[in-house]
Design a protein around this nucleic acid. Structure first.
Ligand code: SF4
Ligand code: SF4
Lengths: 152, 152
DNA sequence: CTGAATGCGGACCTATCCAGTCGGATATTC
DNA sequence: GAATATCCGACTGGATAGGTCCGCATTCAG
């Protein structure tokens, strides 16, 4: 429950890797997969999805590969998750197909929706840059980018 | 992904219902199930789990049922989820059995762990009382119980 | 021109987990 | 002792996540 999919996980790792290698014109899916031990074909599909959503630019052919479409600090973890796993909801009531049929009688879905938004806000406040920067570095308490007010 | 299980969902609804009926000595699983249209047997098991974890007190026999073990504002949503779905992790690396084998090479699990803690903090800041109070009431911006600092 | 490297995209398989059900035992009251 | 409860384990069916396979399109080096 409440778990990130591995695809999203892999996607974040890959983006971070790309952010850490800005000198490279493009890195192939295989390069990234080998760097971390991720199944190459699976990562390939993930990167394709990210490309389709406009987070990456791709280039086929020899010496082709992927590169960030924007600056690393302009890409949030939320976007990545959204691109890979689709819309983000912690409850089942909004699953598109076959919503929970007690939605009318349910009295907690509204409070939970706020929790949902809060979590989304947290994820939006994290950029790929943040992930890359954090390498072996003690927590910077005064970063100031994440202060989230939950108003139930 | 990142979805609450329906069991946890049902559990929260049930606790809220109990919180809203403090006058009742005890409410049976069936009472609550009927009130919302939740499968009775399933809810029964959920309430049993909550009892085992000490969030509810139970009483068998006629006119038996369940009652909150503590004051509604002393029970957090986090505890409920924990009791029903077990330990709370957004990543797969800590699933107890069969952890993700790239844990050593993974470079994002530490940042994600912080996100995890942040979310846990949000859930801890929500009490059953909060859920019950919120009935048809506009958001009270000055509630002040939830201000969560995310320090990546 | 040709072939290797790469991205693209669908079909497919499999294991796991969730939601819900069933059956039976035990406890309490009337 | 009958009715009403909680208690507890086992089971099933369906959904989804994780991963594989294969064929095609694109690019570039020699
Ligand atoms: S409607 Fe209520 S019970 Fe159904 S999924 Fe949404 S929150 Fe959960
Ligand atoms: S180790 Fe890294 S890849 Fe594996 S589950 Fe944890 S965060 Fe995800």
């Amino acid at each position: 429950m409440l778990k990130l999919t591995k695809k999203a996980d892999y996607g974040l790792m890959a983006l971070k890797y790309l952010a850490e290698h800005p000198e490279a014109v493009a890195l192939s899916a295989k390069d990234v997969a080998d760097a971390y031990g991720i199944p190459a074909q699976l990562l390939a599909k993930i990167l394709q999805q990210l490309t389709k959503k406009g987070l990456l630019r791709s280039h086929a052919g020899m010496n082709g590969g992927y590169a960030l479409a924007r600056d690393a600090r302009e890409i949030s973890a939320f976007e990545v998750i959204l691109a890979i796993d689709g819309p983000f909801f912690i409850t089942s009531c909004t699953k598109g197909t076959k919503a929970c049929e007690l939605t009318p009688s349910c009295t907690i879905k509204e409070p939970l929706a706020r929790v949902n938004e809060t979590i989304a806000g947290v994820l939006k406040s994290i950029s790929i840059q943040d992930l890359a920067e954090h390498e072996h570095q003690p927590a910077k308490a005064s970063e100031g980018h994440g202060l989230v007010a939950l108003t139930l």
